[in-house]
Design a protein around this nucleic acid. Structure first.
Lengths: 148, 148
DNA sequence: CCTTCATTTCTGTTTTAACAAAAATTTATC
DNA sequence: GATAAATTTTTGTTAAAACAGAAATGAAGG
């Protein structure tokens, strides 16, 4: 990925700026590719993310604040995101009996099965995106990214 | 930035997945910080980006397709983005006399002045974001990012 | 208990983005 | 030159995100 070529500029920009633009371009690429891979399932990246968190709960229900805390991209209205998963039958939701302010969200069997399918295509897409990296380079990259 | 800590997971994930989540988290950070820096000017990151492109034209007008081509994040409706810059008096727009399908967009004096101010705070923010990197590390990072 | 405050979720509103199709103009072809 | 095709921008509609405030419940202190 050549930054200058993509944004069609010949001007030399500060290394700091170039780095941040670079990250944004890569993010756009990830978002687009993974989003497309999920399109057949009619779920957004965010919804996929929530399903993964719920599976990670291993049967233990999660409430909204837990979801929000663990989401890659925090958003203000997780309620409506869960509404959509509910409409697809991928999750169950009920008020928490011990604290009726809270809500308990669980992935359904149907949600789990769909998620297994999604995992496959997402993993393939992820591998495609990083296909030009060796394992060692990926490790080196992660070390550098930790510095942000 | 510790990925596992931020998304509150203890599970070991594939290096590929971790890398892409990492990129997304960093992108969120950039977006948030630079967005906040621009807030006093009441322009979005995208609008700031367009102003920079227009300045790069050095007086030569740009049309919508040129803008779209050079934007970091492509979007379908650049028309409405330019509408907003127009409302703020930061750009001028008129139909291209030689090809009346096209439109010519120019940054105004007021836009240039505002942009100079924005540049300052954005550059500061960018430096903050990469403050833990040495110049050499930034170069190394850019080389790795080129592999995407 | 009653009042106040804190927590958690939900709702309303406004912005922004995504997608598709329409309108205006130019270019090409017969 | 008329008609069809291509290009560029605009508009309409729907979906998603951001922001702020309301509602419901629980906890604490008098």
């Amino acid at each position: 990925m050549n930054v200058e070529e993509i944004i069609k500029t010949t001007k030399k920009m500060p290394l700091e700026t170039r780095t941040l633009i670079h990250i944004t371009l890569i993010h756009n690429k990830i978002y687009e590719h993974v989003g497309n891979a999920l399109k057949p399932f009619e779920v957004s990246l965010q919804q996929f993310n929530v399903l993964r968190i719920l599976r990670g709960q291993k049967g233990k229900p999660a409430n909204l604040s837990t979801l929000n805390e663990r989401m890659v991209t925090k958003m203000s209205n997780t309620t409506r995101l869960v509404d959509k998963l509910l409409a697809k039958g991928y999750v169950d939701r009920c008020v928490c009996p011990s604290n009726r302010r809270k809500v308990e969200i669980l992935i359904t069997e149907s949600g789990s099965q769909a998620l297994t399918q999604m995992d496959k295509v997402v993993a393939e897409t992820e591998n495609e995106i990083v296909q030009h990296f060796s394992k060692q380079e990926l490790e080196q990259l992660n070390l550098l990214l930790d510095k942000f």
